[in-house]
Design a binder for these strands. Structure first.
Lengths: 217, 217
DNA sequence: CGTGCCCCTGAACGGTCATTCATTTGCCGG
DNA sequence: CCGGCAAATGAATGACCGTTCAGGGGCACG
């Protein structure tokens, strides 16, 4: 193979129609999202992104310092918004850990169904950022995990959750990771054309989570 | 950024010690595994792989047709082995769907803890393969999912499983995907240095799965 | 009409990539 | 010691990458 192949076939750009509707910086962000999601950060070239929004390579650098910064900008905004709605979901669910866990699961799964592309990029392409750029995103992820751990701890201490335990101090962390893995990766296979609606998915996952942690009625 | 940065810092090669112990084709496979897992297929160069096993770039092509074929070889062998042990686990668990599901979860999670590197590569780098090379691997994955679906169906029909349902025909498929996502991604964060042993992880995940599908005692 | 200014262009730069290939190496049975 | 052959070398090839930059609109404002 001398010539580089298009390894993940691009599904195609959303038609030249509304390209020029929004400011170019937004068009670039959108095109980059699409392309990163479909083919992966390292094989998407600056030329690809800019062509997809009707510009040429050089124009990128009027809006972003580098391709790296573009990716970071994209992921950071997605991640920040995710953390925000996670806090919001828990805050608005009262004090019962069962309601908190269910609300969290529903919001988290719903978002990962609806914003599939954004979630996919944020979760898959983060590794390409250099250490300093990745730090704040990793921090945000840990914060989200700790929300779940806190809910689990409250449930266990109040006797409302009786999860399977191995006896170690890290159990709740492992369970939280297991649940988050499950919820996050909906974005990898859920398609809006499927038979199950987003709300049903959210409910299904919330039910499974409550059962998995041994929630008492 | 003109010069390319080492985006994911390589952890380092397992010392020049036993490089020459095994046949070069095995050394290449092993080195490629390590590098792909640590830094990702597109940024690992042929030179990197070959240097890691004490050879030069050109020597790769005495053993593999291309870099693509090397990746496919690696993933396909991992995936084939995984499918094999999944079938084996179910076959050796008797006829009770509860025992089948538990055995499957235990074997699957245990493998993803123990062979973290292999699992990580097989699950993350598959997208870089072209369509024809990826077909058999996708097929194998579907086969594994269908094992889980079959177990769930048997459990539901015999009344031993009472999972949360939305009423659609795709429910069991969604639940199977949710469980597999959870089990698979242990390999993304589990570290052997952690507080929980592989066997405990496997048991924890098996318990959660049985609870999630509403297994009756 | 002129003057800035923002934004875009497209060639150019220095670099890296996978792959090829003529040549050399190292090992083997005889 | 000799031929033969599989395997390794390392320079060469052709392509493409991210980024830079000098030049050029086009549009608002005086």
């Amino acid at each position: 193979m001398t010539k580089r192949k298009p390894v993940r076939t691009a599904i195609g750009v959303p038609a030249a129609a509304e390209r020029e509707q929004r400011p170019p910086i937004e068009a670039i962000r959108a095109a980059a999202f699409q392309q990163f999601a479909e083919r992966g950060y390292p094989v998407v070239t600056v030329r690809d992104i800019m062509k997809a929004c009707g510009l040429t390579q050089g124009a990128l650098y009027n809006h972003f310092k580098s391709k790296d910064e573009l990716l970071h900008d994209i992921i950071a905004s997605t991640q920040g918004e995710l953390e925000r709605i996670c806090h919001q979901a828990v805050a608005g669910a009262g004090d019962d850990p069962r309601a908190k866990l269910a609300a969290f699961a529903r919001v988290y799964v719903m978002r990962h169904c609806r914003l599939r592309v954004e979630a996919l990029v944020a979760n898959r392409e983060i590794g390409w950022l250099d250490a300093e750029r990745v730090a704040d995103i990793r921090h945000s992820r840990r914060a989200i995990r700790d929300i779940v751990v806190a809910i689990l701890r409250q449930g266990v201490e109040s006797g409302l959750f009786v999860p399977p335990l191995t006896g170690g101090r890290q159990d709740l962390k492992a369970i939280a990771m297991a649940l988050l893995d499950q919820w996050t990766h909906v974005s990898m296979w859920y398609g809006p054309g499927g038979e199950i609606a987003e709300e049903e998915m959210a409910q299904l996952y919330a039910d499974m989570a409550l059962r998995a942690v041994g929630s008492r009625p």
